[in-house]
Every structure is written in structure tokens, then in C-alpha cells.
């Protein structure tokens, strides 16, 4: 048997497995989007259909809904692999675990984060979001949702060994989500005033880059602790 060492092959193998599994259990993809849709469509009903008020609140509503719906799938991120022993096989493979983890987080984002980004223009209509703010919303979600996946995966990795780790994970992860929320909503607010919001985007981008580099290391250490 020939054996080759290719990081790309490992990444694509782990990524396609997770995406394939998500499409087999469609609830995993549909749930976060449905949650997002329910929250957004309930708000106009609850606070009244006044266009000005809705447009003012839209960025916050969209972001809070996105944040919570990303958390929905997080608990499952490593759970199945932990329960069936796949995680041990991934640790015992000769590749670095941080790369495997990067692929898993990427798959998680493609399945839960990316659909939200793509659906946002549609949902923005429900909240009467201005078109100038819409661009900012989509851009902040595009930078912010992968960041949420990375941060959340650290919490998921730490709590995967616990029987009911979901609540603990939320407690661990939510404080770390707050800076993302602040900068993202600030960017959208700035855009509604027709000002330049590239500063906030740059900070989000910087946070994402730091997360791409450092989070996989933290996640893989967390997983090794959980497995031992």
C-alpha cells in the first residue's frame, strides 16, 4: 500500500465527510435557517410593523438571530465523532489534528453560516432594512459567521466529553461572541448613516485571521483533553 502525505487530501476528506453527513441529516442544515427565519419574522409581529422602528432595529435582530442560530449546530460539531470513536481515529492519524479541526470548522460554517449569509437579503426585506445597510450586513455576516464558528468550536471541543455540555458551552462561548457582535452591529449602524465602515470590517477581518491561525490549535488541544 502506498502512502502519501498530503494536507489537502486530508482537509478535503474531512470536509466532504462532514458536509455529506449534514446533507444526509437535513435537519442539521434546515434547523438554523428555520430558527433564523422564525426569529426575524416574529419581531415585526411583536414590536409592531412600523417601518422606521424595524429598520432601526434590523441589524441588531439579524445579528443576534445569526449568533444564536450558529450556536444551535455547535453542540453536534464534535459530538458524533466523539461518540463513535472517529475522533480517536483522527487523533491517531499521522496528520496534525489542528488541520483536521480546521476542515471540520470550515464544513460547519458552510453548512450553518453560509446559508445565513446567502439568505440575509431575503430576510432583510422582512425587516425593511435599507439597501445601503444591506451590503454592510452581508459583509459583516460574511466575516463574522466563520469567526463565530471558530470561537464556538473551542467551546464545543472543551465540552464534548461532558454528558450535557450544551449549557456550559453557551456560557463559555457567549462572552467571546460579544466583541464580534459589537463590531458587526457598529459597522451596520455606521453604514445607515452613510459613513465609512471599513474600520469595523477591518477589525472583524483581523479577528477572523487570528482565529484561523490560533483557534485550530486551541480546538485540537481541547479535543485531546476531552478524549483523554
Amino acid at each position: 500500500m502506498t502512502r502519501q502525505h498530503s494536507y489537502w487530501l486530508l482537509f478535503s476528506a474531512v470536509f466532504t465527510k462532514d458536509v455529506k453527513l449534514a446533507f444526509r441529516q437535513r435537519a442539521e442544515i434546515v434547523n438554523p435557517i428555520l430558527f433564523f427565519l422564525i426569529v426575524i419574522s416574529l419581531f415585526p409581529l411583536a414590536i409592531g410593523p412600523e417601518p422606521g422602528l424595524l429598520a432601526r432595529m434590523a441589524p441588531g435582530i439579524i445579528w443576534v438571530a445569526a449568533l444564536l442560530s450558529t450556536m444551535l449546530g455547535l453542540d453536534k460539531l464534535f459530538r458524533d465523532d466523539f461518540n463513535d470513536g472517529s475522533l480517536e481515529q483522527l487523533i491517531a492519524s499521522s496528520y496534525p489534528l489542528s488541520l483536521t479541526v480546521l476542515a471540520k470548522v470550515a464544513a460547519h460554517w458552510v453548512v450553518t453560516g453560509l446559508p445565513l449569509v446567502l439568505m440575509t437579503p431575503l430576510f432583510a426585506l422582512l425587516l425593511n432594512l435599507e439597501s445601503s445597510a444591506l451590503t454592510a450586513t452581508v459583509l459583516t455576516l460574511l466575516l463574522g459567521t466563520p469567526l463565530l464558528s471558530f470561537i464556538g468550536a473551542i467551546g464545543a471541543g472543551l465540552t464534548v466529553g461532558l454528558q450535557k455540555g450544551g449549557i456550559l458551552m453557551s456560557l463559555l462561548v457567549l462572552p467571546l461572541y460579544i466583541p464580534v457582535l459589537i463590531f458587526a452591529t457598529s459597522a451596520i449602524d455606521t453604514s445607515t448613516m452613510s459613513l465609512d465602515y471599513s474600520g469595523q470590517l477591518a477589525i472583524l477581518g483581523a479577528m477572523l485571521l487570528i482565529a484561523i491561525i490560533s483557534a485550530p490549535i486551541a480546538i485540537s488541544s481541547a479535543l485531546k483533553v476531552s478524549v483523554s
Binding site: K17, K20, L21, R24, Q25, D80, D81, N83, D84, G85, S86, E88, Q89
Partner: peptide, 8 residues
């Protein structure tokens, strides 16, 4: 735990 995914 054998590391076999039962969905696949």
C-alpha cells in the same frame, strides 16, 4: 468505540 460512522 470503533470509529465507524453509522450514517455512512
Amino acid at each position: 468505540k470503533t470509529g465507524v460512522n453509522t450514517q455512512l
